[in-house]
């Protein structure tokens, strides 16, 4: 906005197209530039570009600028490793399949339990009193601490992973569903009541439609939290899965592989969040915008 004043010396009406394009996309241009510089800096650190360049000037003081790739890897090494794992040996696909399965089952269970529970405790005041202490306590607990208990209960297998993902994802869903019902427009409810609408009718035509944005917002939170479960759940006694791959590679100092795994999980998380976002837009299209 303020660029208008900077570039507008003399002719405010029509800045050249290139300048205009820059002004419109400044954020993106700047961001890309910074990202590229950062990647170059990183690559240079592990290849010793900066150490070599500065050594004539400051001698051995430049040595810390050469960081062995075992510590930081490098963008090119990570890209090469990703190519190898995805295309050449295709070793990552079985990990991906396993993690995706536990993720889908865990998140699915969290939705199946969290949404009805949240909706019900938003609707029935006494139920919310009854489950309140449990929700608050569970919310204050780092749910990951339950992992040793879960392992005692169900062992190291798939069930343990599903349960930990469930434990991480269920609360955001339940809590947002609860507040969704609570914040329903009271006037709408009154009107419906006075026209003698039944509970089920109220629920279906007023509560549920107005709850959808909250439910989806909770889902978006849960999608991210559940990603943690993949890594944490596979810390112990897991042979397959992206999290297990990350942990294994970390203990073997295969930093490149760790970064590939981290990026895969980050990408999956962003993709899912974007998916929920698209659903939100789709679902909200009918609502008159304020």
């Amino acid at each position: 906005m303020s660029t208008q004043t900077v570039i507008g010396e003399g002719h405010v009406e029509r800045p050249p197209p290139l300048v205009r394009w820059y002004a419109e996309h400044r954020r993106a241009v700047f961001g890309t530039l910074v990202a590229i510089l950062f990647l170059l800096f990183w690559e240079g650190l592990s290849r010793g570009w900066w150490a070599d360049a500065l050594r004539p000037l400051i001698g051995h003081a430049a040595d810390p600028l050469l960081v062995p790739p075992i510590f930081i890897s490098s963008p090119s090494r990570i890209a090469a490793e990703a190519w190898r794992m995805f295309v050449v040996t295709r070793e990552i696909w079985s990990d991906l399949r396993f993690s995706a399965m536990e993720y889908a089952l865990g998140l699915g269970a969290a939705i199946a339990v969290g949404m009805p529970l949240g909706l019900a405790s938003g609707w029935y005041r006494r139920l919310s009193y009854a489950v309140g202490p449990f929700l608050a306590g569970f919310n204050a607990t780092p749910q990951v601490a339950l992992l040793p208990l879960i392992i005692i209960w169900v062992g190291f297998g798939l069930a343990a992973k599903i349960l930990i993902i469930f434990a991480l994802a269920v609360l955001p869903i339940a809590i947002s569903a609860q507040s969704a019902v609570r914040t329903t427009d009271a006037r709408l409810l009154k009107v419906a009541h006075s026209f003698g609408a039944g509970e089920w009718h109220l629920f279906r035509t007023i509560i549920l439609p107005s709850a959808v944005p909250f439910l989806l917002a909770g889902l978006r939170l849960a999608v991210g939290r559940a990603m943690i479960g993949i890594v944490v759940g596979e810390i112990f006694g897991s042979a397959v899965g992206v999290g297990a791959m990350i942990n294994r590679s970390g203990s073997r100092f295969e930093t490149d592989k760790v970064f590939v795994g981290v990026l895969v999980i980050a990408a999956a998380g962003m993709l899912l969040a974007e998916l929920v976002h698209q659903i939100e837009r789709r679902v909200e299209a009918w609502r008159p915008s304020v």
Partner: peptide, 26 residues
Amino acid sequence: SYLLGPFIDALNAVPRLTLMPIIVIW
């Protein structure tokens, strides 16, 4: 915010706990 935004967004998108193995190496 233009300068740091990309880093903040990128770091925010990564579940930081997955960096655990690297942090232990460091």
